Amino acid sequence: MVVEPSEAVFNDMMSKVNTLPSYTGGDQGFLNSYYSDFPNAHVFDPNIPQEVLKVRPVPEMERLSTLYNADVGLYMIANKWMVDESELRVIHYTLGPLKPWDWWTSWLLKPVDVWQVY
């Protein structure tokens, strides 16, 4: 993934940080307010052929599919991934202190044992 910082976006965010609502009172809630159209964004597809990419308009925003942003919190609630587990590329550890690098979480979170192997 390539991320290109934008001073203009940063300055715009800073100008709105005290006025946009944050349902969490923190950064995630602010980002959800700032990027309010995010739920409607196209899902990134890494398999689009080059000839199609060359002629289609560049989307303003794309979001990652579950393959690249599998939420461990949702996994814990539903007890399953929303995609084939063997296809997962990125697991997003969203549950506060339950992180894979902490040895004591392996019995709580199924994918931690996979993370610790590598």
Rank of each mutant, 00 (worst) to 15 (best):
M1F: 07
P5C: 06
P5T: 09
P5V: 13
S6G: 06
E7P: 08
V9E: 08
V9T: 12
V9A: 12
N11S: 10
D12V: 05
D12S: 12
S15C: 01
V17A: 13
V17K: 14
V17L: 12
V17E: 00
N18Y: 00
T19V: 07
Y23S: 15
T24D: 15
G26F: 00
D27S: 15
D27Y: 06
G29W: 02
G29T: 08
G29R: 07
F30Q: 10
L31S: 00
N32D: 03
N32Q: 02
S33M: 05
Y35E: 00
S36L: 03
F38L: 14
F38W: 08
P39Y: 00
N40R: 09
N40S: 09
H42W: 01
F44G: 08
I48Y: 02
Q50G: 04
E51L: 02
V52N: 04
V52H: 08
V52K: 09
L53P: 02
L53R: 14
K54T: 03
K54V: 02
R56W: 00
R56Q: 15
P57V: 12
M61A: 13
E62F: 06
E62Q: 12
R63E: 02
R63D: 05
T66Q: 09
T66R: 07
T66W: 03
L67P: 03
Y68M: 09
N69K: 12
N69C: 14
A70D: 00
D71T: 05
D71I: 03
V72G: 06
V72S: 11
L74M: 14
L74Q: 15
Y75C: 07
Y75V: 06
M76Y: 05
M76T: 07
M76L: 13
I77S: 11
A78W: 01
K80C: 09
K80D: 10
K80I: 04
W81S: 11
M82R: 15
M82I: 12
E85I: 13
E85K: 15
E85F: 05
S86M: 08
S86H: 14
S86D: 14
E87R: 13
L88V: 15
L88T: 13
R89K: 13
R89S: 04
R89T: 08
I91Y: 00
I91Q: 04
Y93D: 06
T94I: 00
T94N: 01
T94F: 00
L95N: 08
L95S: 08
P97R: 01
P97F: 01
L98H: 05
L98S: 04
K99I: 08
P100Q: 10
D102C: 02
D102N: 05
D102W: 02
D102A: 05
W104T: 10
S106H: 02
W107R: 08
W107I: 10
L108W: 06
K110V: 03
K110I: 01
P111H: 13
V114N: 09
W115V: 15
W115M: 14
W115I: 15
W115A: 15
Q116N: 15
V117C: 09
V117K: 15
V117R: 11
Y118E: 14
Y118F: 04
